[in-house]
Design a protein around this nucleic acid. Structure first.
Lengths: 195, 195
DNA sequence: TTTTTTGTTGATTGACGAGTCAATTAACTT
DNA sequence: AAGTTAATTGACTCGTCAATCAACAAAAAA
């Protein structure tokens, strides 16, 4: 039965199963057996490949963060102009790949992980700094010194929309989220506001 | 030894200990024994008074929500004028009573609880509706039809600032948070923006 | 062919934690 | 004084789960 070169396949399956299970239960009380079962293998094999539960959680987190980064990067690559690039970041943040029930649920729990696991905190820190950097880069030419303030506001707004989605019984509505955030952005960019 | 009328005292002590322990560990992996120990009693007594761990969590949540509601209510009572009332809500949200490390940590975990426990979801729903109602009441006279959109934005912004605080290693800076949100509010209220 | 490496799992271990219970102490009542 | 009720806990049960292990299967290497 043993086919060779299973490792990457099994690891990927486990990572996906981890995200799915966290999203399904909504918390971190997910057993290795549940994850392994969903990934179609025994719990012992999960331990064999990842060494422990914590490592699995971190791998899942890294995966979500990577997907998010790729989505943003792709959108940025074909956006021209500062405002268009800002829109691209927002749209990628609520794109169908990221703004899904299970991913939103997982994201919420990443924040909980970060309270305890230094590596999780580090990963979220990287995400936050990159988001801030992306926003600042295109805000500075548009609003000057207000860039820092505005990017902080936008980042909090994006996180807040995610958080509220985690509580909502309705399935994520990316379009509405994008409209909300872009609206706020537009107002921040309105000419009279430069102060 | 048994003094009479202990029940309310012990319950209050347990509620505070629950919040403190959740805030300390940053997650819900808190044992009844830990809570009971911090509250200065045996775990059996905690079970005696609350019946179970879940009930204790819900009581802690209700307490935090009640404190928050009282803070907002008090601030609203002595604010005159629509804009002043909006400011009052924001200031109360980040007042020193609510915007504390342990409370922020607890708050984050209430969102996690809401994923699983219907009563927790209900409680958070009440909080969200009351906040929305408070904001709408004073936004409508100021921005008309945009009130719904603006109140949704403000609510998400407030929640987002809380969420980001949970990750920050620095201790909560209420003044900075208030400044950020009030700034966003001011811009939303700026005359030219009515559209 | 034999050996080694990789994949795989059922069974087991060891720890921990929620909830229960029986028993004890002290205060109130009559 | 006797009886009832509230407060309190140590010890115990029962379940769960992460992690480990021993053993087996198949492919690759020698």
């Amino acid at each position: 039965m043993p086919k060779l070169g299973m490792e990457p396949i099994r690891k990927a399956a486990l990572v996906n199963a981890t995200i799915a299970e966290i999203g399904r239960t909504g918390n971190l009380d997910v057993t290795v057996s549940q994850i392994a079962k969903r990934a179609g293998m025994s719990s012992a094999l999960a331990h064999h490949y990842f060494g422990g539960k914590e490592t699995m959680f971190l791998a899942a987190m890294r995966h979500v963060l990577t997907l998010y980064g790729a989505e943003v990067g792709g959108a940025l690559a074909m956006a021209v102009g500062h405002e268009a690039r800002l829109h691209a970041v927002v749209r990628a943040s609520f794109g169908p790949a990221n703004f899904r029930r299970e991913v939103v649920g997982a994201w919420l729990n990443f924040y909980v992980m970060a309270q305890t696991m230094p590596e999780a905190r580090r990963l979220l820190g990287v995400y936050q700094r990159r988001l801030r950097s992306n926003l600042m880069h295109d805000l500075r030419p548009l609003v000057g010194v207000r860039a820092a303030r505005v990017s902080e506001t936008l980042a909090a707004l994006i996180d807040g929309v995610y958080l509220r989605q985690a509580l909502s019984p309705a399935s994520p509505d990316g379009a509405a989220a994008i409209a909300l955030v872009l609206d706020a952005l537009t107002i921040e960019l309105a000419p009279g506001v430069a102060r």
